[in-house]
């Protein structure tokens, strides 16, 4: 087969893609289970914070129009936990989890990943602010914090989305 013919080029590209595809599927078979395992363990570790020792299950289909809710989990007989991703001051956003007991009170609030401005937005993750949230119920809005307007607004929007789902689920 001549090097310049279309057939040669086609065969070369095709063989190369097939070879790469096979290698990738092999590596994927090795690494994918580990990745999934790590992901579930991380989520479970976070869920345990709210209701240690409870039975957790994930809710797959939920109707969320805001796009902020990234995960919904049920703690059997105890409450609901919501994983939210919102954008405060930092454009890459931050994630946090909020849990509502079955009676509607806030069971817990914890940041997962955040990079807000230290001394300003990060005050929303200090015990002083978090204690204020723990006093709330599903009907209340999270308080705004002066000097941390964007971050606390983002938390308010996130919790509003979570409580909307909570009310809908009841």
């Amino acid at each position: 087969m001549n090097k310049d013919s279309m057939a040669y080029k086609g065969v070369l590209l095709g063989l190369l893609c097939a070879f790469c595809g096979l290698t990738l599927s092999g590596v994927n078979a090795i690494t994918a289970p580990k990745i999934e395992e790590a992901r579930l363990a991380k989520i479970k570790a976070n869920l345990e914070q709210f209701y240690p020792g409870a039975e957790f299950s994930e809710v797959r289909d939920y109707q969320d129009d805001t796009g902020l809710v990234k995960g919904v989990y049920v703690a059997e007989g105890k409450g609901m936990i919501y994983n939210l991703k919102v954008t405060g001051y930092n454009s890459s956003g931050f994630t946090f989890m909020v849990a509502y007991n079955d009676d509607g009170t806030v069971a817990g609030f914890t940041p997962i990943e955040q990079n807000e401005t230290s001394g300003f937005g990060s005050r929303c993750f200090d015990p002083e602010y978090i204690n204020q949230i723990l006093e709330l119920t599903a009907d209340d809005d999270a308080p705004l914090l002066s000097g941390a307007t964007l971050t606390s607004s983002a938390i308010r929007n996130g919790m509003a989305a979570a409580s909307a789902l909570f009310e809908a689920g009841k």
């Binding site: 893609c17 790469c20 595809g21 990738l24 599927s25 994927n28 994918a32």
Partner: peptide
């Protein structure tokens, strides 16, 4: 089920 071929 070939999501890992996304980049290529």
């Amino acid at each position: 089920g070939l999501e890992y071929m996304e980049l290529i």
